[in-house]
């Protein structure tokens, strides 16, 4: 299963990078969602997989009796999911705002900070 997860991570990353290179900010947002899923899966797999054994402690016990899933990556992913959501929401609003102000969602047409020089236009 780990190897299969690695393949899935590869697919997600490839798709995300390809989308981000398109220069369309709407596709960029999709890519951001793909990439955060890929990253979460990397953390999850790196902590090793334990089938159907949540990290819980039975009543009366001081520690898990059997081998349970690694709790540490789970805690990290929980944080990452929430922060990834915040990032995605903010980016979405930013793109929306940029579209309102600049009238485009194509990144290469947004040249306010670095205006195109004459030879750029010629290209």
């Amino acid at each position: 299963m780990e190897l299969a997860l690695a393949v899935l991570v590869g697919v997600l990353t490839t798709c995300a990078v390809y989308l981000m290179l398109s220069g369309n900010m709407v596709r960029f947002i999709f890519a951001l969602a793909l990439l955060s899923n890929a990253v979460n899966l990397v953390i999850f797999a790196a902590g090793r997989l334990t089938y159907a054994a949540p990290p819980l402690i039975a009543d009366g016990a001081k520690a898990p009796a059997d081998t349970v899933a690694n709790a540490l990556p789970q805690a990290l992913i929980l944080t990452a999911i929430v922060i990834g959501f915040g990032l995605l929401a903010f980016t979405l609003v930013l793109v929306h705002r940029a579209h309102q102000t600049l009238g485009t969602v194509e990144a290469d047409d947004m040249r306010v900070a670095e205006p195109a020089s004459d030879d750029d236009e010629a290209r």
């Binding site: 190897l3 990353t13 990078v17 290179l21």
Partner: peptide, 28 residues
């Protein structure tokens, strides 16, 4: 298809997958 971009994307994706398997090969 933007073939150049696809190449870069594939290079990144495959490398990420391989890096993950390399990590999985180590002792936790």
């Amino acid at each position: 298809v933007r073939w150049g971009h696809l190449g870069v994307a594939l290079a990144t994706g495959v490398a990420t997958a391989l890096a993950l398997t390399a990590v999985l090969g180590t002792e936790l």
